[in-house]
Design a protein around this nucleic acid. Structure first.
Length: 335
RNA sequence: GCCAGGGUAGCCAAGGUGGUCACGGCGCGUGUCUGAAAAACAUGAGAUCCCGGCUCAACUCCGGGCCCUGGCA
């Protein structure tokens, strides 16, 4: 039976480090499930934590994935391959559909090698999409159409969504019905179009419950916030500023994911500030960055808490690591 | 010391001719989620500097106090 391990939880809990340990113990390979580590060039801010001079091994042709769009391959960290890092440049709008498309063959190939795929990351939506499928995955985004709809009020979007796609609209809850992006998507799905690349039925892996082991790493809020502060400080020291400066030679905050990524978008003002005032601005950058990171961690917790399959481990408890190993072992050994 | 302006939630901040639950934003809490998800959205809690006065009624008016900001010295 093909098995798959998921390591999830909020940011800054040490998911990757744990996953590498588990990969060594159970002969596994990591598959990134973090929506930002997908991007090339965004290393320090997204916390890829690769050893210096890590070499990327491209495997597109082996997997039969066109290189023009995605670069698929792995880095070797302590002998463990990590897949799905650096898949696209920051000006490509990666989505859950891209993720499913790219993660599925990678995981199948790991199984063929008789190894254990370990999905690591905090993007709950990607994990869910990959493991449960997405019904409307065959319907591509129509950006010009979206742009047009963005001009409408929520009220008008609601009316239109209800008219054009009553099934989906009626299933939406109060919160979603006030979310323009959701409403626009509902309208878009029902909007006739001629392009539309087909992609299976729902995509994803479609696994049984016993095949997947969900591992969640967590800590009390105070600890979490402390970890976040530490990691922000570390990333500053690692030269995130310089990394962004480099990225800005090719991309801008407006035309790339830099403008909507924590740890990057907070620097926008910094790079428009004259040198003599930069120090002052940097303080604001760091404050805003930490805050955003904390808020994000809470949202992740809210998302993962709902998933009753997750086996939670607190990194504050003594002996948590061996408890994790034991739990995984018991699950993995079972036929 | 004098002149002017001001003190409204953790922070920023609107208000008024005295009269139902005091506008917002940020932050904080809780939650939503099938192609933007490190995104977007929903929802909750929380305030009138102190003392006295006028009044049926003051955050709003009057007097005093304390504190802050700017200008002049």
């Amino acid at each position: 039976m093909n098995k798959l391990l998921v390591v999830c939880g909020p940011t800054a809990m040490g998911k990757t480090a744990l996953a590498i340990e588990l990969a060594k113990k159970f002969t596994g390979e990591l598959v990134n499930a973090d929506s930002r580590q997908i991007y090339r060039g965004m290393d320090i801010g997204t916390g890829k934590d690769l050893p210096v001079n890590s070499k990327f091994k491209t495997q597109n042709s082996k997997l039969g994935i066109k290189k023009e769009r995605y670069q698929i391959g792995y880095y070797l960290v302590s002998g463990v391959p990590i897949w799905l890092l650096d898949v696209v440049w920051p000006d490509y709008r990666f989505s859950v559909a891209d993720y499913i498309r790219v993660a599925t063959p990678v995981i199948r190939a790991i199984w063929q090698r008789k190894k254990l795929p370990i999905l690591v990351g905090g993007t709950g939506f990607y994990l869910k999409g990959l493991l449960e499928g997405v019904d409307t995955i065959g319907i591509t985004p129509d950006w010009p159409f979206r742009k047009k709809l963005e001009g409408l009020t929520v009220d008008r979007l609601q009316k239109r969504a209800q008219k054009v796609n009553p099934n989906r609209f009626n299933r939406m809850n109060y919160s979603d019905r006030h979310n323009p992006r959701r409403l626009i998507r509902v309208i878009e799905v029902a909007h006739p179009r001629q392009d539309g690349e087909k992609f299976g039925e729902g995509g994803g892996l479609v696994l049984d419950k016993e095949q997947v082991f969900w591992l969640g790493l967590t800590a009390a809020i105070g600890k979490l916030d402390q970890k976040i502060s530490q990691r922000v400080k570390k990333r500053l020291e690692m030269g995130l500023g310089a990394e962004i400066e480099e990225l800005l030679k090719r991309f801008s905050f407006d035309n790339s994911v830099l403008g909507e990524t924590i740890g990057y978008r907070q620097w926008q003002e910094y790079f428009q500030t004259p040198p003599n005032q930069k120090d002052q601005v940097l303080d604001d950058v760091v404050d805003g960055w930490k805050r955003a990171e904390r808020q994000y961690a809470r949202r992740q917790l809210t998302w993962f808490k709902k998933n009753k399959q997750v086996n939670w481990f607190s990194i504050e408890k003594k002996g948590w690591l061996s408890a994790v190993v034991k739990a995984v072992d018991q699950w993995y050994i079972k036929k």
